Amino acid sequence: MSEAQNPNATLSVAILSGKGGVGKTNLALNLSYALFRAGHRILLMDFDVGLANVDVLLGLSPEKNLQDLFRPDVTAEEVVLAVEPGGFDFLPAASGVPEMLEMDDDMREVLFHKLNKVFGSYDYLMLDLGAGISQTILSVAAMSQLRVLVVTPEPTSLTDSYAVIKVLHTQYGITDFHIIVNQVEGPADTQATFTRLSTACNHFLGFEPILLGGVRSDPALPAAVRRQIPLLRHAPRSPAAQDIVNGAVKLHRVRQQRQQALVDAPVLGKIPIIRK
């Protein structure tokens, strides 16, 4: 059985941010595309249930979305869309649906009971989560096997990103965070931004996150957004595209390091017990 067909080899990656406007969704899309181009089967799941927009970036108009999975007659296979033949699929979310923003345990159980039937067909489950610290975002981030936090050099982004890390650590005991610094001028900007966040985590929480890389500011990215295609298709040799590919390579190395642990692990585990 190939790696892509092994139902126990799927790595779930929650991509989240402390605040909006940091480029999280574009990074989720293009990291997914980079991994797909490297030969991996990808399911990109839009879980920004408040302001879903991955479909807009892809120029798609889905007929069904996550909200439809609460209907007994709708299966996960009916909601999944093929973005590229050969293994790049997409699960759209519902936008502007208040009841999806704060899903209770029963709603999550119904949703993931259906979705678990398709997750094992992929090497990566990439979850584009909303910004902030809503309970839905926190619970899915805690259930995921890996968390990638997107930050920018702006002080507000750093402050809000630290808040996300702190809440996930204090409530769920999580110490495993990977950081992508977006919209940087270069490596020095990446390192300085990461050092500020890492120092705060070490001082106040007793652990340090891991730097996955930086992505340079690039005019090719808004141009790709206007064309509604991934940056890696629009301008694959652009600085930001090269940085994203490097981040995808590092992400795959993490998956290889954890390969043995994935053998018996669920794609999305149970929510850890909340600490009092």
Score class of each variant (00 low, 15 high):
25 T>R: 11
96 G>Q: 07
254 V>E: 02
25 T>S: 15
88 F>K: 00
107 M>F: 07
127 L>Y: 01
109 E>N: 02
106 D>I: 11
272 P>V: 06
66 L>H: 04
17 S>N: 02
139 S>W: 00
12 S>H: 07
164 V>R: 01
157 S>Q: 13
164 V>N: 00
269 G>Y: 14
105 D>N: 12
80 V>Y: 04
144 S>F: 04
144 S>I: 05
9 A>T: 04
237 R>M: 05
81 L>H: 04
214 G>R: 01
215 V>C: 08
145 Q>C: 11
206 G>Q: 12
243 D>E: 13
162 Y>S: 02
116 N>Q: 14
33 Y>K: 10
145 Q>R: 15
212 L>N: 01
215 V>R: 02
236 P>T: 03
269 G>H: 12
163 A>P: 03
90 F>V: 00
120 G>F: 09
93 A>Q: 04
7 P>W: 02
8 N>I: 01
191 Q>W: 08
45 M>C: 12
165 I>E: 02
200 A>L: 10
180 I>N: 00
275 R>L: 13
57 L>M: 14
242 Q>Y: 05
69 L>Q: 02
6 N>I: 04
53 N>C: 10
271 I>F: 13
30 N>K: 05
260 Q>R: 13
17 S>Q: 03
191 Q>P: 00
253 R>W: 01
72 P>C: 00
87 G>L: 06
260 Q>I: 07
109 E>G: 00
73 D>V: 04
123 D>P: 09
128 D>M: 11
257 Q>N: 11
19 K>F: 07
181 V>H: 04
201 C>S: 13
233 R>M: 13
87 G>H: 12
106 D>K: 14
240 A>Y: 06
30 N>F: 03
186 G>A: 06
105 D>E: 14
60 L>R: 12
144 S>T: 08
180 I>W: 05
172 Y>G: 07
146 L>T: 12
251 L>T: 04
121 S>E: 10
98 P>D: 11
54 V>C: 12
142 A>I: 09
237 R>A: 11
259 Q>A: 15
125 L>H: 02
260 Q>S: 14
100 M>V: 08
222 P>T: 14
206 G>C: 10
